[in-house]
Design a protein around this nucleic acid. Structure first.
Length: 919
DNA sequence: GCTAATCCGTA
DNA sequence: GTACGGATTAGCT
């Protein structure tokens, strides 16, 4: 026997299932989920291709009870039930395996692990090499001979990690012979092997290095210094030995097979190829045919695409040739060459993903595909002085290129812009950003990062950052890596950016969204960069004081809650809280979550008054949330260099066109209740010469609704400056406006908002806490009062159904794929998206246009005042005291006139010494 | 060390 | 019912 591949079938199926979990693949013939099956064979064929085993053993766990269960009744008891769509696929996998000639090994009462152990034992002497595919740590114990190795999935289903004894030693710090002892201590949560609670991998490895075995440890208990470790070992001795036994793999099962039974079958035979096709797996069929060097035999009925949308195959792109620049002369020469460029792709390497914190380590660029250059910045800490140039040298030669009018392209170039500006460079004429282009083309796309774009658009596998710096313990800092290596990575990034530019430029031209990219997103880059660089000032001592106040409050509430509950528990754990509320205190359950009963705010509100603990819980939640998310977190984000916090705005996250904010998120600073508002008081002007100004659009989305729906009643209300909520209330309750109470108006306000989200009777009834029927009749009356709104909604849905997307007033598009779905709830959700996105998106467009104009004005007129933050319908400024009223009037005007509509746009706001007072 | 689930802050 | 980001816990791909 030359090479035996043993596969742990369940590990294999799980790997495949999760690798394709998000893709929702369904079989074209049956319409059933097929991701796991598809992935299984994709991965299997890859393994067979890569390792060419002469023999293959497919092992599976049996369905029935296990012998280990007799030893320990809780064995595998905590294991989650299998996902419901997976079980039939395991059956399908086994059927297919049988059909294409693989022998499936399964033994009642014994897990696949024991079969694997036995196979190893039986063939370790005769087989040249044995490869075990599994994810199970227990199996490391089988690696005691050099010819036995393990494989584990790495990423996707086409990459594998090879594991052998030295690897295990390096990873876990123990010898493969000690694995059972190791598992005895560490245990395994997924199999519910208890181990010794309180001692983890680090402790176990230390103990075993010292005393070799579990027996050794127990013989030498007295020598163990750490008293808590000693107690744990003593108290859980029985568990330790039990766990060791559970983790010990049997190697002496009676397997009723011969070597011949597990010979690798001819899985590329015409029959097999046709078989996959007949089962609806066209891609697998084609893959097989291709690797066998033949056509798919024209025998079976041509079927539709098997695994959902087939992708166009783009020929794999070629690697470029890259160069590290190591002398000033070389740099000067290359820079002279750059002068003739039509466009230059630029990328920077730094010390941090946060541009405000980042130090510049190098710059890469490319003005032609398959080429790229990298220049590394000299750094006293670097070991590679001779491969770097000083910042001054780089600035002298590259600076003029970057600041010239030669067009630049980048991938997320706002980042590079901020970094370069922070280091004294000027980056002019940014013409294209590949990330933004990808986003306006596919605003729902989750991945606009370069590695993904390179794969999708160029069929090119980039060197990833992790490839360069390593992961885990071996991770290095970029400064400590040889610039020759960094150059390969960095120059490739510039090259790939250049190539992506060429592809995306064409896509954008034919797309209909070119104006959104060129006139909105691109011009916004320097605006956001400036805001991020400016940051906002935080009153840190004030936050520290708040932290103390909140802490006191939290500790008090915690005591009260534990007292009410009859003992301490982890209040933050919803699982424990469920136990306390619904088991111990026997309170009503109100609604369910996927995993149990909900304890969210809505539920607690509902239970208010039924037990004194509820009141305390609500307060506890409020204070802990505020403290951990804001009070403690924000001061940590203050940049030591500037003394301010610099958020990062992302232009490519929200499918509607909104911005999002991270590190920290300054778009969700509390405002609704009194305690929350305390936080806004900590956002202050940077000096006594300045004040905070907040300007926000009044009812912007409802005004946009009035405009796009052309509803006469709504248009009239706004054009006459009437109180829209009051008007709506009068219509909903059938009373004259003079008789509308405050409460009625509040309800009407909720209805007005809900309509923008694509109101449903169910949603409205929850929001207003009224019966479904009542909500339904509200909606009917609403649509009678504003019939234009009803027709707008119908029109958007019809437009979406016809075109597959909806758009904003300025032409920003969002796909609504599910709008033609036969799946009712998917279709309803898509309809709400079709109704809401044009409104939310138009509002986002409007404020973006205003921001671009404002930024231009601030620069042109050299205002001392600055724009700091954007919160969807609000802009926050830091205004010099001498400029106050003049500046406010000018900015208000830009906001109000950014996108004229058929209704007046109203902007309101005021000054304050902090954000709370200004709002 | 990573991800999912839950909860909660904003517009 | 729309659109986000982040803290925490729990469990394990």
């Amino acid at each position: 026997m030359k090479r035996l591949l043993i596969i742990d079938g369940h590990a294999f199926v799980f790997r495949a299932y999760f690798a394709f979990g998000a893709s929702n693949l369904t079989n074209s013939k049956t319409g059933k989920p097929s991701g796991a099956t598809f992935g299984f064979f994709k991965m299997l064929f890859k393994l067979l291709q890569d390792y060419a085993p002469t023999h293959v053993a497919m092992t599976f766990d049996p369905g029935g009870p296990l012998e280990r269960g007799k030893i320990f009744e809780n064995y595998k008891a905590t294991r989650k039930p299998m996902p419901e769509d997976l079980r039939p696929q395991i059956k399908e996998v086994m059927d297919i395996l049988g059909n294409i000639g693989f022998r499936v090994l399964k033994l009642e009462g014994h897990e696949a692990d024991d079969i694997i152990g036995t196979l190893c034992e039986n063939y370790k002497a005769t087989a040249k090499e044995i490869l075990i595919f599994s994810g199970d740590k227990d199996l490391y114990q089988l690696l005691e001979k050099k010819n036995i190795k393990m494989l584990r999935g790495k990423k996707g289903v086409t990459e594998f990690v090879e594991i052998d004894a030295p690897w295990v030693k390096e990873e876990l710090g123990v010898d493969v012979k000690q694995i059972t002892d190791y598992m005895g201590i560490v245990g395994d949560t997924s199999d519910n092997i208890p181990g010794v609670k309180g001692i983890g991998d680090k402790g176990a490895s230390k103990l075993l290095q010292e005393y070799k075995t579990l027996d050794g440890i127990y013989k030498n208990l007295e020598k163990i210094k750490n008293p808590s470790m000693k107690t744990k070992l003593t108290e859980q001795k029985e568990n330790a030995y039990l766990s060791k036994e559970l983790a010990t793999i049997k190697r002496d099962l009676k397997l009723d097979i011969t070597e011949k039974d597990i010979e690798t079958p001819d899985f590329k035979s015409d029959q097999a190829i046709l078989y996959f096709k007949s089962q609806g797996y066209n891609t697998l069929s084609r893959d097989l045919a291709k690797s066998a060097g033949k056509e798919v035999p024209k025998d079976a009925e041509p079927t539709e695409s098997a695994e959902g949308a087939e992708e166009k195959t783009i020929p794999a792109a070629e690697k470029g040739v890259y160069r590290l620049i190591t002398s000033v002369d070389e740099l000067a020469k290359i820079c002279r060459g750059l002068l003739k460029s039509r466009i230059i792709a630029v990328d920077t390497e730094t010390t941090s993903p946060n541009p405000a914190m980042a130090d510049l380590l190098g710059i890469s660029f490319s003005n032609q595909e398959k080429t790229g250059f990298y220049v590394s910045v000299r750094n006293s800490a670097s070991l590679f002085q001779d491969k770097t140039l000083t910042m001054e040298e780089i600035k002298e030669h590259l600076g003029p290129i970057l600041s010239s009018e030669i067009p630049k392209v980048g991938q997320n170039i706002k980042y590079d812009l901020i970094v370069l500006e922070n280091h004294g460079f000027v980056l002019n004429n940014i013409q294209f950003d590949t990330m933004l282009a990808s986003y306006v083309l596919q605003p729902e796309g989750r991945r606009h990062n370069m590695d993904a774009l390179a794969k999708d658009l160029l069929n090119y596998d980039t060197i990833t950052y992790d490839d360069l710096v390593g992961t885990g313990k071996k991770k290095k800092e970029l400064v400590d890596i040889d610039p020759d290596q960094v150059a390969e990575y960095a120059a490739e990034d510039a090259d790939i950016t250049f190539r992506l530019y060429q592809v995306l430029r064409k896509s954008i031209k034919d797309s209909g969204v070119e104006p959104i990219l060129r006139q909105m997103e691109m011009p916004l880059i320097p605006v956001l960069a400036e805001m991020e660089k400016t940051g906002i000032s935080l009153d840190v001592p004030y936050f520290e004081e708040l932290a103390r106040d909140f802490d006191r409050e939290i500790r008090h509430l915690e005591g009260e809650i534990h007292k009410q509950a009859g003992g301490p528990f982890n209040i933050a754990s919803t699982k424990e809280l469920q136990r306390i509320l619904f088991d111990e205190l026997k309170l009503r359950t109100v609604k369910k979550t996927q995993t149990g009963f909900s304890t969210d705010h809505e539920v607690l509100e509902e239970l208010l008054g039924e037990h004194p603990i509820i009141d305390k819980l609500l307060d506890y939640r409020k204070y802990t949330k505020l403290k951990s998310t804001y009070v403690d977190a924000l001061p940590k984000m203050v940049n030591p260099k500037t003394g301010r916090v610099h958020t990062s705005y992302n232009q490519t996250i929200a499918a509607t066109g909104r911005l999002s904010s991270t590190d920290p998120n300054l778009q969700n600073i509390p405002i609704r209740d009194k305690e929350g508002r305390l936080l806004r008081k900590g956002f202050v002007a940077g000096s006594d010469d300045y004040e905070i100004l907040s300007l926000d659009y009044s009812q912007i989305e409802l005004r946009i609704m009035a405009h796009v729906s052309k509803d006469p009643a709504m248009l009239e209300a706004y054009n006459r400056g009437l109180d829209i909520h009051k008007r709506t209330a009068a219509a909903l309750y059938g009373v004259p406006e003079t008789e509308v109470s405050a409460e009625m108006r509040d309800k009407a306000k909720v209805v007005n908002f809900s309509v923008i989200y694509g109101v449903t009777p169910y949603g409205l009834s929850r929001n207003l806490r009224i019966p479904r029927e009542e909500a339904k009749s509200f909606i009917e009356r609403y649509m009678t009062q504003y019939p234009g709104v009803k027709s707008y909604m119908d029109e958007m849905v019809a437009f979406g159904e016809k075109n597959g997307y909806v758009q904003t007033l300025t032409g920003r598009r969002r796909p609504v794929v599910d709008i033609n779905s036969t799946h009712k709830s998917a279709k309803e959700a898509a309809k709400r998206i079709a109704i809401n996105s044009p409104i939310q998106g138009t509002s986002a467009d409007m404020i973006k246009i205003a921001m671009i104009a404002i930024h231009e004005d601030i620069q042109r007129n050299k205002w001392k005042s600055k724009m700091l933050l954007q919160v969807h319908d609000e802009l926050v400024f830091e205004v010099h005291k001498k400029e106050k009223e003049e500046f406010k009037a000018a900015m208000k005007k830009y906001m109000e006139t950014a996108m004229p509509l058929d209704v007046p746009i109203l902007v309101q706001g005021k000054f304050g010494i902090n954000w709370d007072e200004a709002h």
